[in-house]
Amino acid sequence: MNIGEVSLQNGRLMGRIATRTIDLPRIGLRAVESQNPRAPRFEVVALNVARRWVQIGALWEAEMKKTGEVFLAGNIDDPSLPEPLPVALFRNESGGYAIAWRRDTLRSEAGGSGFGASNYDMQGGEASGRYDAGQDSGFGESTAGPDGTMTREMAPFGAGEDDDVGF
């Protein structure tokens, strides 16, 4: 099911996601610069109610097994959501992406065509179904300590103005 789109606007990939219960009218894709081969290709950022850009997801390059088509896959997540929203972005003719959502099904967990987090490792292969806390996720170290306090400063996403996109 298509739930949004991203297009090139003023040199940036900007768009929207909307479902019956989620409305993200301003999202952006920020390229991730990393030497880690497991790092995501893009961070998904959204304009929050305070008009600041916040990260709400990450996207990895994946490849369809049957056709070899390359697409972006990942999750949108926020404390306000009951669970992560699995998404895939497919290139369109205008150079942007169509955003699709799909609920994981028994078929997908049995090796079918789903691409949700429970059955796809975002690196082009099947997932083990377990999270290994000791494995490098590609995101680097956490900024939160064991008690939830910030352990180091994060770089600001931007000035917070609607027209001043900070990525």
Rank of each mutant, 00 (worst) to 15 (best):
R12K: 06
F139W: 04
L13R: 00
G96M: 01
Y131L: 15
S118Q: 10
A88R: 01
R20H: 04
R38N: 06
N75Y: 01
A88H: 01
A100D: 06
Y120S: 12
A110I: 10
R52E: 03
A46P: 07
T143N: 03
G160C: 13
T105H: 14
P79L: 13
A50T: 10
N36M: 04
R103M: 05
E63V: 03
R152P: 02
L13S: 08
D23K: 12
W60H: 02
S128Q: 02
A144I: 03
I27H: 00
A159Q: 07
E33A: 13
T149H: 11
R91H: 08
R107N: 11
G95A: 09
R38A: 04
G111M: 12
A98G: 15
W53M: 07
V54F: 05
A46V: 12
M154R: 08
M1S: 11
L13D: 00
F167R: 00
N2E: 11
Q135P: 12
L106R: 10
Q123P: 13
E43H: 08
L81C: 14
A117D: 06
A110R: 06
S118K: 05
G116T: 09
D164C: 07
S7K: 02
Q123C: 11
V165S: 01
S80D: 09
Y120M: 05
V44D: 00
I56V: 08
E161D: 13
M154Q: 12
T149M: 15
G166W: 09
P40H: 03
V6I: 14
N92K: 02
E61A: 07
G116H: 03
E61T: 03
N48W: 02
I56T: 02
G57K: 11
L89H: 02
P86Y: 15
W60P: 02
L85G: 12
R38S: 03
D132M: 05
V70D: 06
M150S: 09
L89N: 01
I3T: 08
Q35T: 05
M64C: 15
E63H: 10
G148Y: 08
E109T: 13
K65P: 11
N10K: 05
G111F: 15
E153R: 12
P40S: 04
I27W: 00
M122P: 04
G124F: 04
S128C: 07
D23E: 13
L13F: 03
D77K: 08
G114R: 01
E126Q: 15
P79V: 02
L13I: 00
N48S: 07
G95I: 11
G145V: 11
G138S: 13
S128T: 13
D132G: 05
A18T: 09
T21Y: 07
E83D: 10
M154F: 14
E33V: 13
R152W: 06
G15A: 09
I99M: 08
T19D: 07
S137G: 14
P156G: 13
